[in-house]
Design a binder for these strands. Structure first.
Lengths: 245, 245
DNA sequence: GGAAATTTTGACCAGTTGGAAAAATGTTAG
DNA sequence: CTAACATTTTTCCAACTGGTCAAAATTTCC
């Protein structure tokens, strides 16, 4: 329901402060990390752990989550879990790395040769699908943002920024060609992120407000319809529309 | 740059489960809680603590925050802090209660006798101002939502829902009168929440993407302009606009 | 000034948390 | 079967956590 292997992007020189004694002997018998090709069984266990960790981290954030909790959800003992991931941070890093990749995929697919409205519409749709199908990933990301993104600043300041810059340029071109209302392309992108991820991150609120009646999967359909209308109307290249007050 | 006292709204009958032993003697010498009119000095100290707690809770969530952290930010010892607030949960509850009240004020002011676009525009503006002036409150709220709103379910399921229902009805009336594009009023409200709070909750991301150049307070001006355009255009009562793909 | 009340501090505690060590239990290839 | 390896469990620990308590320092009020 959520797995999907994503290539992990290492942050080479992070080097956090060490306060615990453990440091030297890393190639001991315990972790199966050293060079080995990583058997299929190991991969499976790691996936189980990552699954469980996603559950926990996405709800409580990094500091609010405990290894014990994750181990319990994963159905194994804490030391056993630590056999696969030498430390808590490592699990979290793996999740974040995997997340960033999938999370940006829809934006990467934004095609400058396509029709502006088709592109925007399908971008919205894909982001909304992700909010529906991977809410935990969305919340993990949101948690990270709320905490000031301590572990991924470089990622968002470099990779993400570059990607958005690129797509903003495309939007600007479309605006110049009169195929799209002239506005700030960055805030346009922000607004798509915000409106779609809202359905994952604030799910409880959305459900509560919509009431027991209307909160099956249908709410995503409604959201899609509404957002489509809002953005299609809102961004159509027309001078002015309403001028009251 | 952020202070501004907010009137606190008490939740009378929350009654959470007790698991710690402390329970009986509450009128002991320690806490200045019993009946006393609460001196001005006490209020000041409590405010200092709440300020500090807002800093910490809004970044790390409830579980991820420690009393020691809060005490340090507040510039006092942990036992001293605990003298004013007998337990961690109490501080958090106070913050949340205060928050909810201010947070919903703009929506309460939504006036059915006003002009639809004027009302929506000023609602957006006010929400954006709150995201700018009270980002920590916004993040505290977001953190609570991400965790499934365990401490405020009743609040959002009852009070919030009722308020939104009421305002949705107003929006529907306007739509019936042809003064507003016909759409789902609930999702319309969600989209305003999402787009405005985004600037508080995902502040790091917004700053990073906009780059060092354009991230002074100006970004809120730009956001306001963009959102105004999006919503004013997007919700104007016109049949169809673009029909490609 | 001094007794009473308030506020602050220092020492302490039981439970939790991240993690280490090593022994115990599989598993597998020769 | 058994040596080499992989996995799991048991035991343990030091630091941190929320919170208590009594004594000390300070303020308040007569």
């Amino acid at each position: 329901m959520s797995g999907k292997k994503l290539k992990a992007v290492e942050h080479p020189p992070v080097s956090a402060r060490r306060q615990h004694k453990a440091d030297a002997k890393a190639a001991a018998t315990h972790p199966p990390s050293r060079q080995r090709p990583l058997t299929r069984i190991q991969k499976e266990k790691q996936d189980i752990i990552l699954e469980a960790a996603l559950d926990v981290f996405s709800m409580h954030g990094f500091r609010g989550s405990t290894i014990d909790q994750i181990a319990e959800v994963a159905g194994m003992s804490k030391p056993n879990l630590l056999y696969y991931f030498p430390r808590k941070e490592e699990i979290h890093r793996r999740l974040i790395a995997a997340l960033l990749d999938t999370w940006l995929a829809p934006l990467r697919d934004f095609d400058e040769n396509g029709d502006p409205f088709t592109e925007i519409r399908s971008y919205i749709r894909r982001k909304l699908e992700m909010a529906r199908d991977f809410p935990r990933e969305s919340r993990l990301f949101a948690n990270e943002m709320l905490q000031g993104a301590p572990r991924i600043t470089e990622m968002i300041e470099i990779d993400l920024k570059a990607l958005v810059d690129e797509k903003a340029k495309i939007l600007l071109t479309w605006m110049d060609q009169g195929r799209l209302a002239r506005t700030d392309p960055y805030h346009l992108i922000f607004s798509i992120w915000a409106t779609t991820q809202h359905y994952a991150d604030f799910d409880v609120q959305v459900r509560a407000v919509l009431g027991k009646g209307r909160n099956g999967e249908g709410r995503f359909e409604d959201a899609a319809r509404y957002l489509e209308q809002l953005f299609m109307h809102g961004l159509s290249p027309k001078p002015r529309v309403n001028g009251s007050a």
